[in-house]
Design a protein around this nucleic acid. Structure first.
Length: 495
RNA sequence: GCCCCCAUCGACCAGCGGCCUAGGUCGCCACCCUUUCAAGGUGGAAACACGGGUUCGAAUCCCGUUGGGGGCACCA
């Protein structure tokens, strides 16, 4: 049997990382075993899904390089791959089920059902469907039809004790059939419902392994029964535990970024995200930085943990930093450009001068960030005038030696020849020595003067790139400020 | 309420009856390096949820307790 797995997102915008992990495990498993990865869009409910959301899903998958072998855009022998285009197939399946007695029409209205459900709950009975329309007489059916009551279609639970299957992740799962109810498979307007659509599609698309979130675990016995009624072979199942947030609750909006587009905007690299997500609920004793090829070789769905895993943002940040450091400078520069643009530091097609600055800044920021979006702040002063951060000013500019040091630094740079990073460094170091201040103390004010902050790319490089005129100007401005502070003025306030 | 799933350092993973004085990675702490911030180097603290079994022997197997999570729609 050939391995066929599928990702089946309901398109509601950019993908949730939890879903991405599920898809990744499907993808890795398929690649590991040389199987086929199918993408199927579960958009049966037209009111809920938009074309933009559909596009966003495809974009996310492409960005992560989780290419699909069959599905939208690429086609395949079992299309169409959007459930909204498959309703005729579901209708045919419903007819078959109706004819064979596996299903029956149910004339209960939504209001009646809701009321009976509430009563059952209140009395401590199971809230599932009570089977009222299970054995209607021909007369009753005729009467309902005459009244014009619309009918949903329900699956008729078989006389059997239990549904048992061997889950690849969880192990044996057994469900007593008397815990189930005659669940609906088609709405009264004729539209197919989730369980039916999934089973019809998994059957027709020859899906051999259903790998999905364990929120769908309780649907599995129903789907196994449906597969049987339809004469399908039963696929293997693997249910993945939920991804948790730092508070051990299922990862949701409350935890900040959860969608792939948000991670992309924050400056996470797709390769880092893939590596990180693969290690959530699965892993080895050894290395954690693993290429897609390595992951593919090692991955096995049976090794995935049955326990829920927490997404640790700190570890993701670390791993992303590792991947950033591994990038060649040229490639890093290319990926950084949108972030400088986003910070408003360069124009959208960058000018040649801007591009040059971005390129020159890359080695200065390379080891200093964990997310691409952090780069602009480290070299902001290179692109634009910066306000001196009041807290930093307080911290490093109050020392008595500061005005003199800044003055001499400005003077010396003003006449430095030739202008070079090495020259800048040599000059400033010798002044520090003359003034009798340790480098650490001496250069703090220079950082503030040049970049506005003490958290910054190395200042000698910045000065060299900024140029003589602008560097001297900023140093003199800071000197003026420090003079005022030294003379007992009120603490510096940002105006 | 009923049904189901889960349980090793703060986190992720290793462990699949003796090799465990429980290993790796992130984070944390300390020190080193150092022009800030990082990066890098060295070292350290840190876990088998609890209670019963089974066994010569249990983190590993079984049962219970506790704690977390999921599900119970004419949503997916």
């Amino acid at each position: 049997m050939t391995l066929r797995v599928r990702a089946a997102p309901a398109p509601s915008g950019s993908l949730h990382v939890g879903n991405v992990r599920t898809f990744l495990f499907n993808w890795l498993y398929a690649r590991h075993l040389g199987g086929t990865f199918v993408l199927r869009i579960e958009d049966t409910d037209p009111a809920r899904f938009s074309e933009e959301a559909f596009t966003a899903v495809l974009q996310d998958l492409k960005w992560l390089s989780l290419e699909w072998d069959e599905g939208p855009e690429v086609g395949g022998p079992y299309g169409p791959y959007r459930q909204s285009e498959r309703s005729h197939l579901y209708a045919a399946a419903v007819s078959r089920l109706l004819e064979s007695g596996w299903a029956y029409r149910c004339f209960c209205t939504a209001e009646e059902l809701a009321q009976r459900r509430a009563e059952a709950r209140a009395e401590g009975r199971p809230p599932g469907y009570d089977g009222r329309c299970r054995n209607l007489t021909a007369d009753q059916i005729r009467r309902y039809e005459k009244e014009g009551r619309p009918a949903a279609v329900r699956f008729r639970l078989p006389e059997q004790d239990a549904v048992v299957f061997e889950d690849l992740v969880i192990g044996e799962v057994s469900t007593n059939v008397d815990r189930l109810d005659d669940f609906a498979i088609a709405r009264s307007d004729g539209a197919a419902l989730y369980n039916l659509a999934v089973v019809v599609d998994d059957g027709m698309m020859q899906i051999s392994h259903v790998i999905r979130g364990d929120d769908l675990l309780s649907n599995t016995p129903k789907q196994i029964l449906l597969h049987g009624a339809l004469g399908n072979p039963i696929p293997r199942f693997a249910h993945l535990p939920q991804v948790l947030g730092p508070d051990r609750k299922p990862l949701s909006k409350r935890h900040g970024s959860t969608s792939i587009s948000e991670f992309r905007q924050a400056g996470y690299l797709p390769e880092a995200l893939v590596n990180f997500l693969a290690l959530l609920g699965w892993g080895t004793a050894g290395d954690t930085i693993l290429s897609v090829d390595e992951l593919t070789t090692m991955f096995d769905i049976e090794d995935v943990h049955p326990s829920p895993a927490m997404l640790d943002p700190a570890k993701l940040d670390w791993m992303n930093g590792e991947y950033i450091r591994q990038l060649p400078e040229k490639e890093l520069t290319r990926r950084l450009e949108p972030f400088y643009a986003g910070a408003g530091l360069i124009s959208v097609p960058p000018s040649p001068e801007e591009r040059q600055k971005v390129e020159a800044a890359t080695p200065l920021v390379h080891t200093r960030m964990r997310r691409l979006a952090e780069a602009p702040d480290l070299v902001r002063g290179l692109f634009t005038e910066v306000e001196m951060d009041p807290a930093a000013v307080e911290r490093v500019m109050r020392e008595p030696h500061v005005p003199e040091f800044l003055k001499r630094a400005a003077d010396a740079l003003d006449s430095l020849d030739p202008w070079s990073k090495e020259g800048v460094e040599a000059v400033l170091r010798s002044i520090a020595e003359e003034v009798g201040v340790k480098p650490r103390k001496a250069f703090g004010p220079v950082y503030v003067a040049i970049s506005g902050s003490t958290v910054s790319a190395p200042v000698f490089d910045l000065i060299a790139l900024l140029g003589r005129e602008e560097s001297v100007r900023r140093l003199r401005k800071a000197e003026a400020l420090s003079n005022r502070m030294d003379s007992g003025a009120a603490p510096y306030q940002k105006r």
